[in-house]
Every structure is written in C-alpha cells, then in structure tokens.
Amino acid sequence: MTNASPHDQLMQMICGYQVSQIVLTVGELGLPDLLKQGPTSVEDLAQACSANPDRLYRLLRAAASLGVFTETEPRVFAATPLSEILQSDHPTSLQPLTLMMGSEHYAAWGRLRRAVQSNENEFEQEFGLPFFDYLSQHPESAAIFDAAMTSIHGRETAAILEAYDFSQFGLIADVGGGNGSKLIALLTKHPQVRGMLVDLPHVVERAAPNFVAAGVNERMTLIGGDFFVEVPSGADAYMMRHIIHDWDDEKSTLILKNCRAAMQPGQKLLLVEYVIPSGDEPFFGKLLDLTMMLIPGGKERTEAEYRDLVAGCGFQLQRVIRTDQPISILESTAI
C-alpha cells in the first residue's frame, strides 16, 4: 500500500469493510474447515454449507484475490496459509475474533459518528445493555469473546512472561483474568508460584475447568466478585491485563483504589496495556482506542496518562517495560 498513490490508498481504506465482511462470511460458513482435506469443488462446498453454488463461487473468487484461498483449477479451491489460521482447530485460530469483530463489534462501529458527537456508549445504544452485561446474558457471544481474547492474548502472554520475572512473587492475583489463560501459562512456567483468579462469578465458573485441564488447579484460588465493589487481599502482586483500558477514568479510578485497599505498601501493581506513543506513527492501540470508546466505554492511554491515573489511586509508576509485542507492562508500587 505504501507504493500506491494517495487516491488508491484512500480507496483501499474506503472499501476496507468489504474485506472484513468477506473474511467474516468465509468464517461463518466454515469454509476454512471444509478445505482442510484438500482442494474441493464449489459444488461440493456449496452442498456442505447450504449455499448457492454460483454466489459461493463469487465469494470464494473474491477471497482468493485477497490470498485467503487459491483457485487451483476452474471452480476448485484450496486452503492457503491465511485460511489455515481461520480453521477452528488451529493453535492460534482467528476464527473467534473474526466472528466477534464481524457481529456486535461491526454494528457498534457503524455508530462511530454518533459516538464522536455525543457522550453515549454506542454499544449500549445499539444492544440495550452495557457490553459486559450483554455477554453475561448471551452465553454464545460470551464464549466467542473468550475464545477471541485467547487468540489475541496468546502471543502477548509469551511476550509478557519473557519480559518480566514473575518468579519473585509467591501468590499473584489476576484481577479480571477472564478464562485464566494468562495465569495458566504463568503457573506452568513458574511451578513455585500460586495464582488467584478474580472475576465475575459467571466468568470464574466458565474458567474453572481450564485450570483443571492444565493441571494447575491445586495452585489456584478462584474468587467470584466485582472489582468495582472490592478486590480480595492476600496476594503478593496484583495484575490486570487489558482491564483498565475498558473503563473511563472515573471507573478505572474505582478499580485501582479497590486494588490499593487490598495491598500493602511496597507491593506491585502490574498493568498490561497498550501505551499510546506520541506522533503520527501507526500503532494498533490508536485503532483499539476507538473500539474502547464504542463498546465498553473505555480508552487507551499514554504513559503520562497512566502515571497520573495510578498516582491518584495510591500508586507510583516505577517503569514501563516494553515487550516484543505492542503491549507493555506498567509496574507501579503501592505507597
């Protein structure tokens, strides 16, 4: 795209939604899984996914032009490295993220102008509930969300564990830890460390079997609660990954003050977040910031904004640790 003219660059931006909807439809129809066994005719694929053969061919042809599939002979398609990542059983499958981004998220993004011109939460305006309340009442969407977060966070987790020495702590609380994938990886790497998962009761209930399957359940404490009300004490360090970015400053302050109330002076608070750089350089967090605005109502922040935020809650930001992924670890000390 960098070699394209300004006109062509803008055309690609304008038509970007077409690409995301092609990928979504490919995932919804299960085409990546259907092509795992080898090149397959459009007619056989259409029968397998209950599609109109001619219209399906047009979809596949468009997807192949993007590299998602390849047409090996007339009306016969095969998998590519891109489509393999959309297979449901791929170790780092992006199928759940595709389904999530193309459904509720896509609808909320259609309200971007309204969001910029108001102070309303556009997801709530569209679906009638705040995002996390919506998930609690829609188990299928919640399962897709969990799987999507795992696919995103998998690479991040390895980077976090490489960048920071968690072995210095005996018990680590993961506040808002979701399905527990981060704690599972951490406890697997550091067998002497114990973990505490803190999240809403229905989230903790969904996560419990994951710790059993990973063989670390005996080193785990699972606590269902609400971090807007209270954070349990007793851990040596408190960690939150992509939690504070979900909330505005007022609600983030409440969460952080509840963490501080549970901690002793000198204990560590570890926030794993995108830290927005200055300037015009491309950075994924700048786009994710708009998702936070539209869906949960939060925001991505700069280092200075994080420094001020934690300072108002009884912490001092000590350092920002970069990883080999776009995320950073903000290490603060309770004062």
Results as ranks from 00 to 15, higher is better:
99 L>W: 00
110 G>L: 12
163 A>D: 07
152 I>P: 00
190 H>I: 12
21 Q>S: 12
66 L>C: 11
73 E>M: 07
184 I>H: 04
194 R>P: 00
215 G>T: 11
324 D>H: 13
194 R>D: 11
53 P>H: 11
322 R>S: 15
257 K>W: 01
299 K>W: 09
50 S>P: 00
259 C>H: 00
314 G>H: 04
196 M>K: 01
16 G>Y: 10
162 E>V: 03
147 A>K: 13
64 A>S: 15
300 E>M: 02
71 E>Y: 05
176 G>T: 08
52 N>P: 02
24 L>P: 01
49 C>N: 09
242 H>G: 03
20 S>C: 05
334 A>P: 05
308 D>Q: 13
25 T>L: 13
224 G>Y: 07
114 R>G: 00
16 G>N: 13
87 Q>N: 07
16 G>T: 14
71 E>L: 09
318 Q>N: 14
298 G>M: 07
166 F>D: 01
158 A>L: 10
137 Q>G: 12
219 R>P: 02
127 F>K: 05
62 A>N: 08
191 P>I: 06
258 N>E: 06
245 H>D: 09
3 N>T: 14
150 T>Q: 08
133 D>N: 10
72 T>E: 14
153 H>M: 09
162 E>K: 15
192 Q>K: 15
222 L>G: 06
28 E>H: 14
134 Y>W: 15
312 G>P: 04
194 R>L: 04
245 H>E: 15
329 I>D: 01
99 L>K: 04
325 Q>C: 06
87 Q>A: 12
1 M>P: 06
257 K>C: 03
61 R>L: 15
153 H>D: 10
70 T>R: 13
221 T>Q: 10
118 S>H: 06
135 L>Y: 05
114 R>H: 12
162 E>G: 11
221 T>C: 01
330 L>K: 03
110 G>K: 09
116 V>E: 12
59 L>E: 09
248 D>Q: 08
278 S>V: 07
84 E>L: 13
100 M>T: 08
147 A>V: 12
256 L>G: 02
14 I>F: 12
206 R>W: 10
330 L>N: 04
254 L>S: 09
227 F>E: 00
52 N>I: 06
283 F>G: 03
292 M>Y: 02
230 E>N: 12
125 Q>V: 11
335 I>T: 15
